[in-house]
């Protein structure tokens, strides 16, 4: 009798210890990427990434916090342990894998050129003299440089500035993922008179396996937990629920 009580007490203590070590995930993100991550009128975060992040935390029963960081410093700040994982629509690429580890993808969307309706870009030419706007340190930069070395590429701190200069006529075209073009440009006043071109750009050598969640190199345990949670969300319908809030089609991809 005494023995079983003792075991029960030890069991309780262990159980208590386990719950005290509850998982905490500090997400790092950049909030200029509608509809994946942007700000509400009162300054709070919202978007597909935000909902997915919170759903992952609910699935893992983890406590989560969000930290904002400019895009070009988002990996350095992860390495400086300002947060534990980057949930900011970051594409999984070989270059990035050298410095961080990734979860499995949580979505994949093709990239397209966007240009003035009456001045389309001939993607089959070498784009000599064409000025292309793009956000600095994005995968589009590498792809554009490799495929159209003769084009002039201007790198901006954020997409918002790319759209400003595209509508002002300082750049002839821009390349971004379809949903970003649609939601942060074409549906705004600046986007009037512009259209997306027809070709999908998905070259895995540059655009990678899709969009994943980055963790510090070597923290495979956390990456595995997150990947598992993504699969669970796919299976239990939570993913579809979040997806339908933002997009008319399944963004997870085939």
């Amino acid at each position: 009798m005494k023995k079983t009580t003792a075991i029960a007490i030890i069991g309780l203590m262990l159980g208590h210890a386990a719950s005290a070590e509850e998982l905490t995930i500090r997400w790092g993100t950049e909030a200029g990427y509608k509809p994946f991550m942007y700000k509400t009128s009162d300054g709070g975060l919202t978007g597909f990434d935000y909902d997915i992040g919170n759903a992952i935390c609910a699935e893992l029963k983890a406590t989560c916090t969000w930290t904002e960081q400019d895009w070009d410093g988002i990996i350095p700040a992860l390495q400086a342990e300002k947060y534990d994982a980057i949930l900011a629509s970051m594409n999984i690429t070989d270059d990035r894998k050298r410095v961080v580890d990734f979860s499995e993808r949580y979505y994949r969307i093709p990239n397209r050129f966007v240009a003035r309706e009456d001045a389309p870009i001939d993607e089959n030419s070498d784009l000599d003299g064409v000025v292309i706007g793009v956000q600095r340190a994005t995968i589009q930069v590498g792809y554009l440089r490799a495929k159209w070395p003769k084009a002039t590429i201007r790198e901006y701190p954020t997409w918002d500035e790319v759209w400003l200069d595209l509508s002002a006529g300082r750049v002839d075209t821009a390349m971004a993922n379809m949903i970003v073009i649609q939601d942060s440009f074409l549906t705004t006043d600046n986007g009037k008179g512009f259209v997306m071109q027809d070709t999908n750009h998905t070259d895995p050598e540059h655009f990678g396996e899709g969009t994943g969640i980055a963790v510090r190199k070597g923290e495979t345990e956390l990456a595995k937990k997150i990947s598992g949670a993504i699969q669970d969300l796919r299976a239990n319908g939570t993913y579809a629920e979040v997806n339908s809030k933002y997009f008319p089609f399944d963004v997870y991809g085939e």
């Binding site: 070009d72 350095p76 390495q79 600095r136 930069v141 200069d165």
Partner: peptide, 22 residues
Amino acid sequence: STITVVDILGAGRQLNGTYYVT
């Protein structure tokens, strides 16, 4: 460099951005 001119800092940022170094 904040308005896309590749000056000295712009070059530095471009290098950091391209190779993901700090």
